[in-house]
Amino acid sequence: MIGDSFFDRLARSKLLATKTVLLISATGGAFSFLLFAFTFVAAHNVPPMKAYWTADQTAEFWRKHVKGAHVAVGLQLCSGMFYIPFSALVSHNIRAVPGIHPIIATTQLAACSAGIFTWMLGAMVLATTTYRLDRDPEITQVMTDMWWFTTMMPWPTFFIQNWAWGYAIIKDTRPNRPFPRFVALINIIAPIIFILPTAMHTVKRGALSWQGGVSFWLLGLTFGVQLFVDSYCMASVVLRGKIDVTETNTGLNGKVEVANSSPESPV
């Protein structure tokens, strides 16, 4: 067929090489956080708007920064896009740990599948918030509250993902294990901090409010450090050729059997 030679050359190019795909996946966590962080920059929420503002103040803020909010919607919506291949690569590495039960990798990937909506739901709420700013300011204020709560409060899926990843690293007793144990420590401690913003719906001022030092600044810093460390370590493993790309099937008995070996090199 016409064009087959072009696609054959493309398939053999470095652009579609396994190493390229794995490297993009490995850095996906960092890219996700950057887009997430720039969501607040674009929406003029660094530092954040105040939870104690009146409805009129809240509506006026969005009227003044509506174009930035429109950009922020796109950034937040796309922030989870890179998180999917990143989490899939984490799941692949969990499966590679000798003796670990497949339920750990399955749970981690299932948590990602649910958690991706955490990234996107807030974007759709923000889009709705700034869509009709000629409405009653109290409605805009309610939608603004909902944007902050849906964006900053959901932590269970991230908690499960990180703890599953930390557990797998700790269980990896290979002398040449690809990930150091401090990565496990970060992935265990960070989710505990993620829990703290759960209280933001109880206060409008102070460290636990959405503009506070805990719910915004500490959470953001912790989330960024965790994702950047994970992405850096994962990318290092890819560049060192330490990721196995052998295709496997996991049976009902929990044993992993090789189904097909990729003709490509490990990277």
Rank of each mutant, 00 (worst) to 15 (best):
M81N: 06
T157W: 08
T173W: 10
A190Y: 05
V97G: 01
T140A: 03
V125R: 09
I169P: 05
I193S: 02
Q76S: 09
L121D: 00
L126R: 09
N187Y: 03
M143G: 01
C112P: 03
L185K: 08
I189T: 11
W147Q: 01
A110Q: 03
I195D: 04
I94Y: 01
M152W: 09
I139S: 13
V203Q: 01
R181C: 02
F179T: 11
W147A: 00
V90G: 03
I116K: 05
D134F: 03
M81A: 14
Q161I: 15
M124C: 12
W147P: 00
P156C: 07
F117D: 07
V97K: 04
Y83L: 15
E138F: 04
Q76I: 14
S79P: 08
H201I: 14
F158S: 08
Y131G: 00
I100F: 15
Q141C: 01
I103Q: 03
S87Q: 07
C112I: 06
I188D: 08
A168P: 00
I186T: 12
T128M: 09
T150E: 07
W165V: 12
I169T: 11
F182R: 14
P98C: 15
P154A: 10
W119F: 13
P156I: 13
A123S: 14
H92W: 08
H101P: 03
W165P: 08
P197C: 11
W148Q: 03
S87L: 10
N162D: 02
P175N: 15
F117W: 15
L185R: 06
E138L: 05
L109H: 05
P98G: 14
M153G: 04
